[in-house]
């Protein structure tokens, strides 16, 4: 139950790390005047040909970029928003030619699907959900889960898109009696879904039946944890969490990610590994992304740090570039590249 049992990953010093494992392959300049907020990669099909495209989001503009030869990019579609700004891109795996965005000021007020008309290739946007939305995640098999409402009338809704991004089915999941903060898929178990809550619980649903299967209390050391990845092995559930609210601790530095193991039958759990900032690296976790066995995080210092979750330590640091701090980082879903963004609209693509 206690992080005292948690192994702290080896802490290499800043001096021993460099950007050697990161190779800059491309740069994309988004000239839209507003503040850049997110980036993602997805497959888009045009004239029967599927291409790995980049999606960039500024406060009021979302753009789709197609690859040209020699790592250049051409903007092919742009969606505009007038009243409510974009907060984040919500990629929906296994769907081609459709991406979702969450809009709002501090909290999400709308989720919209962005697509193109098959008739005249013009940009279209469809309002999928509005209200007081707390959390949203795109899931494999063309699904999107969201939670909305306040504690007493909280709704957890699962939408399933058709292959062409059209007609969708809706299903409701049993809400827990506490506010959901984030959702997380369980790798290889498409009927299982995890959620983290404001009461420091991890809940698990059966997506086929909508049942809430278990509520599992995790260590109170870190509040408001974000679930990034989970997998089940030998009857145990391994979960990678990040801790945006973790305070810096002198001895350990600031933990960015943590691996915990849960026995879903008994709800008993313990910390396995803390992934802390390298020694000498100031600041704490701001936001991050996990794919396969690598985790990337933007730190409050404006630097990006990368951890190999199997090796157990930080493998690369990417300091601010062009005198600009990094503000968001994503792993590309179409290849193994790292997409790093700055507020002014510069997106740098690195091979890791």
């Amino acid at each position: 139950h206690s992080t005292e049992q948690t192994k702290v990953a080896d802490l290499p010093t800043c001096d021993s790390l460099n950007t050697g494992s990161l190779q800059l392959v491309s740069k994309l300049k988004n000239p839209s005047g507003s503040c850049s907020v997110d980036v993602s990669a997805m497959w888009w099909e045009r004239a029967g040909f599927k291409e790995p495209c980049i999606i960039t989001a500024c406060e009021y503009v979302v753009s789709l970029w197609k690859p040209l030869d020699t790592w250049q990019w051409e903007k092919i579609y742009t969606w505009h928003f007038i009243e409510v700004p974009v907060l984040q891109i919500v990629p929906v795996p296994d769907v081609c030619n459709l991406v979702c965005v969450a809009l709002g000021s501090l909290e999400i007020r709308e989720i919209r699907a962005l697509l193109c008309s098959s008739d005249d290739e013009s940009e279209k946007q469809v309002l999928l959900k509005s209200g007081n939305i707390k959390a949203v995640l795109g899931l494999t098999k063309r699904r999107l889960v969201s939670s909305s409402g306040t504690l007493c009338d909280q709704q957890v809704e699962l939408m399933t898109f058709a292959e062409d991004g059209g007609n969708k089915e809706k299903q409701f999941l049993m809400p827990p009696e506490e506010t959901i903060l984030t959702f997380g898929e369980v790798q290889g178990m498409q009927d299982a879904l995890l959620g983290t809550t404001t009461m420091n619980n991890i809940v698990i649903w059966n997506l086929k039946t909508g049942q809430l299967l278990k509520k599992m209390h995790i260590d109170d050391s870190y509040q408001a944890s974000v679930c990034h990845k989970a997998y089940s092995e030998m009857g145990l559930l391994f979960v990678i969490l990040s801790h945006p609210c973790a305070k810096e601790r002198e001895a350990l530095g600031s933990p960015a990610f943590q691996l915990i193991v849960i026995n879903p039958k008994t709800a008993l759990n313990m910390g396995v590994m803390l992934y802390c900032l390298p020694q000498g690296q100031a600041g704490r976790f701001l936001e991050g992304d996990v794919r396969d066995h690598v985790a990337a995080a933007v730190l409050t210092s404006g630097t990006i740090a990368i951890w190999d979750l199997l090796l157990g330590h930080c493998t690369a640091l990417l300091p601010p570039t062009s005198d600009q701090n990094w503000s968001f980082v994503k792993w590309s879903g179409t290849d193994s590249h790292l997409l790093a963004g700055q507020k002014d609209g510069n997106i740098f693509i690195y091979r890791y």
Partner: peptide, 22 residues
Amino acid sequence: SLKDLGPISLNWFEELSSEALL
């Protein structure tokens, strides 16, 4: 130790789903 996590079941998802139906 993992023993502190109690009895483990490889079919935990199916078992929890059946228990939730009861």
